[in-house]
């Protein structure tokens, strides 16, 4: 924990996270998500084995780690797309009992996917409208009778258009989502997640496969989410991105939480360096 390493991005530990110890499982003042004893194995491989980790509300937390560290499995568990062998977690103060993805989404936790899941044969606008929660017209009987949902539909469309403008996709609104470029699909997925007004957005590699020009605008959008008071957890490999936008970094390796701390503290952490590069990376094994 060398404090003399110059900070590359955010302050070493600013805002609500100031003064916390840089150690795995440290208690946060106002956590939105707490995972406890979460464990998932595939056959003999333990993919996730997290004792305790907390994520602060209103902050951008990066989840990093070498390939195979269990980041995506952890994401899948938290969002209900996979079931843990043991352990549980708490979202927004409530323990998550039956982890159905759709229930978690309705509770305010919306995720995106590493491989974008834009619904290619729906228009961009329909993609957006789908994201809105509590639609009366989504029940089969109300759906038959237009007056029961047309007013709400209008409001949803306005909200969708506003978000599309903000994400610079307004000109594409009536295109099929399949016509969008890879980066635009990432933008659409993020915008669509916002239609649900989530408290917590989980972004799985939001910058993967996005060209550098678009990365900047995506980063801006993620920062805007924090400015709106939402919490963000994202998986990312690009350390520049992590330094730029995250308030706190959680490092995973071999399924466990290896280290925690503000971005500046992570680069200097010997455990993290070992996990990424191997324990003996700086030894000359050929030397006598």
């Amino acid at each position: 924990m060398s404090a003399d390493v110059p900070s590359a991005g955010a302050t070493p530990a600013g805002g609500p996270l100031a003064g916390l110890a840089y150690e795995p499982g440290v208690k946060k003042p106002d956590p939105i998500l707490i995972a406890d004893g979460l464990r998932r194995s595939f056959g003999g491989l333990v993919a996730v084995d997290v004792d305790h980790v907390e994520f602060q509300r209103g902050c951008i937390t990066a989840l990093i780690g070498p390939n195979g560290a269990g980041k995506t499995t952890f994401f899948n568990l938290i969002t209900g797309f996979d079931r843990p062998d043991a352990g549980g977690w708490e979202f927004d103060g409530k323990p998550v009992g039956k982890a159905n993805p759709y229930r978690l989404a309705r509770a305010g936790m919306v995720r995106t996917f590493q491989l974008t899941k834009s619904l290619t044969r729906l228009s961009v606008l329909e993609n957006m409208k789908l994201g809105a929660l509590d639609q009366r017209g989504e029940s089969v009987f109300a759906g038959l009778i237009r007056p029961m949902w047309s007013q709400q539909e209008k409001e949803i469309e306005q909200k969708a258009d506003a978000l599309l403008e903000r994400f610079k996709l307004g000109h594409m609104r009536s295109e099929f989502a399949g016509n969008l470029s890879g980066g635009q699909r990432k933008l659409l997925e993020m915008a669509r997640a916002l239609m649900a007004d989530p408290k917590l957005i989980m972004l799985d590699e939001p910058m993967a496969g996005v060209n550098p020009a678009l990365t900047q605008s995506l980063l801006g959008h993620v920062k805007d989410l924090r400015a709106e008071g939402r919490s963000v957890i994202f998986v990312e490999h690009d350390m520049d991105v992590v330094h730029d936008i995250s308030d706190w970094v959680v490092v995973m390796a071999e399924g466990r939480v290896l280290a925690e701390g503000p971005p500046a503290s992570i680069g200097a952490n010997q455990d993290v360096i070992d996990a990424y590069l191997g324990t003996h990376h700086d030894l000359d094994l050929g030397a006598p």
Binding site: V110, S118, L119, L133, E138, G143
Partner: peptide, 27 residues
């Protein structure tokens, strides 16, 4: 009538990618 409604939109989204529909709160 059903397919022009939001109900139909959810159905089409399931056809495209049911995990995406799930992640957006659809049962």
């Amino acid at each position: 009538l059903l397919m022009r409604s939001p109900w139909g939109r959810v159905l089409k989204s399931i056809r495209e990618d049911e995990d995406a529909a799930r992640s957006l709160g659809k049962n």
